[in-house]
Design a protein around this nucleic acid. Sequence first.
DNA 1: GGGCTGACGGTTG
DNA 2: GCAACCGCCAGCC
Length: 112
Amino acid sequence: MKQEPTGEIYEKMYQIIAAIPFGKVATYSQIASLAGKPRNARQVGYAMKHVSKERKLPCHRVVNQRGELSPDHVFGEQDFQRMLLEMEEVPFLPDGRIDIKHCRWDERDVQL
DNA sequence: GGGCTGACGGTTG
DNA sequence: GCAACCGCCAGCC
């Protein structure tokens, strides 16, 4: 059983991911930046991969800047993540990617 | 301590 | 807009 990272930055990441509103998606760089590590976008993915399911993080709302979803081997089936996003009214493009430009979570929206 | 990997990003062509 | 290349940095062998 893999243990989740105990670093404070990971805890920060989990909070940020959990703060993503319904129908919105955030990029790895956004989370990393808000966590205080703008260059650690990869660590965001690493964190979610090793995080416990008890966290119930909406990892399906976390995508890269291209709007591509996580590799199929993560969720088991890529359609599963896509289904969750479509269920949240997230606009999808014919290419199979999500319209990141139109549903990107703006952290400023939370503070305003 | 050294080298490789990765749910990535930004720049360049 | 897309593809290729390089760069970042924590984690793991």
